[in-house]
Amino acid sequence: MSDQESGAGAVPAPRDEHGEVIGVRKGMFGADNGGDTSGYGGLIRTVTLPGATSRPYGGWFDEVADELEGALEEQGLLPGNAIEKTVVDRDELTFHIAREHLTTVARTLRDDPALRFELCTGVSGVHFPGDKGRELHAVYHLRSITHGRLIRLEVSAPDDDRHIPSLVAVYPTNDWHERETYDFFGLIFDGHPALTRIMMPDDWQGFPQRKDYPLGGIAIEYKGAQIPAPDQRRSYS
C-alpha cells in the first residue's frame, strides 16, 4: 500500500480518550445472533464522543461562556446547575444544559446584549440507545447575527421520561421544528402550543427516526435473486 500513502496523511487520529462513552459495538457485519462465523466476533469498539473541555476554551468562546454564567448568576441561578458541561470540539462550542433550566438559558442567550443569539436554527433530535439515562438528545443551534457567532445547546432526556421544555415561547421558529422532532423521536416538548405529528400521517404508530425503529424497506427481487433491505444487509459496525 506504499504508493497509496503518499498523501497528506492518514485518517485523522481518534480524538482524546477522555471522552464520554455512549456505547460499545461488538463484532462486525451486524452478526449479533450468536452465529457469527466472520472471525470478527471478538472485535470490541467503544463509541466515545468528545468529553468536557476545561478553560480556556479559546477565542470568543470564553467571552460567551463568561457572559452566560454571569447573566445566569444575576438571575439567581447557579451556572453549575444549569450548564452540565461545556464541550469545545472542532471549533464549535457546545453547552450541555440541564433540561429544567433550558428555557431560562435560551431566554438569557437571546436577550442579553452581550450574547444576542437572535436566530435559532431549529432542533435536531439524536437517539443514543446505549447512553443510559440520557438516550434522547435535542440539539439546538443558535446564531447571533449581531456578533456573528454560532453556539450549540444540547439537552438530553431519558427514554422513560421523554420530556423537554418547549422553546416556542422564546423562539417561535421552533414550532414546526419541535413538532418534527416529536414526530420522529417521540420527544415531548412541554409547553408547545400544539404538539402533533407534522410529517407522518396522524395515525402513524411509532417514531420512525429512532434507532430502535427499523428502516422499513422491503427486499428487492431480481430475476432469480433477492437482495435484503438496506437495514438487513451486512454492515461494518
Binding site: 481518534p14 459495538r25 463509541v47 464522543l49 468528545p50 457546545t94 436554527t121 435536531s124 454560532l150 450549540r152
Partner: peptide
C-alpha cells in the same frame, strides 16, 4: 471520528444547515 458538527450555507432560500453526528463508524 466520533463527534458532531454543524455547517451552514446560504442556499437560494435561506440558511441551509446540516447537523452531522458520527459515532466513529
Amino acid at each position: 471520528p466520533a463527534g458532531q458538527a454543524y455547517t451552514a450555507v446560504e442556499s437560494p432560500k435561506g440558511e441551509l444547515g446540516v447537523h452531522v453526528v458520527s459515532d466513529g463508524g
